[in-house]
Structures are given as C-alpha cells and as structure tokens.
Amino acid sequence: MYTIYHDFTINVSKETIFEAISTPEGLNNWWTLRCSGAPALNEKYNLYFAEEYNWFAVISKFVANEAIEFKMTHAMAEWMPTSFGFKLEELKPNQTYVQFYHENWNEVSQEFRIASYCWANLLRQMKHYLEDGIITPFEQRN
C-alpha cells in the first residue's frame, strides 16, 4: 500500500485548523463544494464536488483539536479503500505543524499522482484561507 504525505506549518492555532478540517463549513471553504456531517468518531460525511463526485466517508479517528481521519466509503474506484487525515501539533501560540496523509492506495497510479498534486494545491489554499482569510472559489480549486 502507498501513502501521500504533506507536512507544513500554518500560523494559526490548532483549534482553528481543526475546525477547518473537521466541520462541513470549514471543509467547504477550501475543499468541498458542499459537505455534511458532524465532527465525531464514526460519523458519516457526504463530500460533494459534483454529481459524478458525490462521495462519502466515515470519521475513523477523532481526537478533538489534534487528529482526524476520514475513511472513504463511496468514491471513485482508486480512492477505495483509502483514508486521509491530519495530525496537528502546536509549536507555539498561533503556529501549528500539520501532518497530512492519504493512505492505503493500491498502487502509485496516475490517480495517485494527480491526488498528491491536488492535495498539495488544496492544502496551500487551506493555509491561505486560515492565515489570510482568502477563500478560493470552488471552480478555481484543483
């Protein structure tokens, strides 16, 4: 199995980041077009990007303000049975180290490579959203 990793620092509190990665409103501001779910262990999330990308996941790990993991339950074939998540470590007030991973890929396929690139761009956009209040319109995200 293969894993995508991205580690970076965001200059806000881990509580602020956790809200952006665990709540539907937070996810809609940098990733999904429309999202529903509740931030708690075993909760089901609908991750909607377009009609053909109407995906679902379950929260498989949850430690408030420290870690969250989403296990895909319905998505395109190559995303099954992957999980993605975040680990947060506050380095000092308003500076948080973020460890992102997307694991259990069956192979380093074209979709794996595209997903890695897209995650890097989306995570950069999340950083701009959290640090500068910039929300990239959904149509311009990649």
Rank of each mutant, 00 (worst) to 15 (best):
K61Y: 00
F56T: 03
F56H: 07
E52L: 11
T73A: 02
M76R: 07
A57N: 04
A57K: 02
A64Q: 14
I68W: 11
F86E: 10
K61Q: 07
F84G: 05
W79Q: 02
K61P: 00
F49T: 04
E43P: 04
W79V: 00
F62T: 05
K71S: 15
V63Q: 12
T73C: 02
F49L: 11
Y53L: 15
W79L: 05
L41K: 11
K61C: 02
A77R: 12
A40S: 12
I68L: 14
T82Y: 01
T82W: 01
E69H: 00
K44W: 05
F86H: 08
L41T: 06
E43Q: 10
A40Y: 06
M72K: 00
T82V: 03
E43G: 04
F49M: 11
M80R: 00
E43R: 05
E51H: 08
L41H: 08
A50E: 12
T73Q: 02
F70P: 01
S83G: 12
E43T: 04
S60Q: 07
E66R: 04
E69A: 09
E78G: 01
N42E: 13
Y53W: 15
W55F: 15
I68P: 13
L41S: 07
A77S: 15
W79N: 02
I68D: 13
V58A: 04
P81W: 10
W55V: 01
Y45I: 08
V63D: 13
A67V: 08
G85Q: 05
G85A: 08
S83L: 13
N65T: 09
V58M: 08
W55D: 14
E51R: 09
A64D: 14
K44H: 10
F62G: 08
N42M: 11
F84I: 09
E52W: 07
E52T: 12
Y45G: 05
N54K: 03
T73Y: 00
M72L: 15
E66G: 01
I59H: 06
Y45D: 06
E43N: 10
N42H: 11
Y48V: 02
Y48N: 03
F70D: 02
F56M: 04
M80Y: 02
W55P: 01
L41G: 07
K71L: 13
Y45M: 08
G85S: 07
K44S: 14
F49Y: 14
L47D: 06
N42F: 09
S60R: 05
N46C: 14
V63C: 07
M76Y: 10
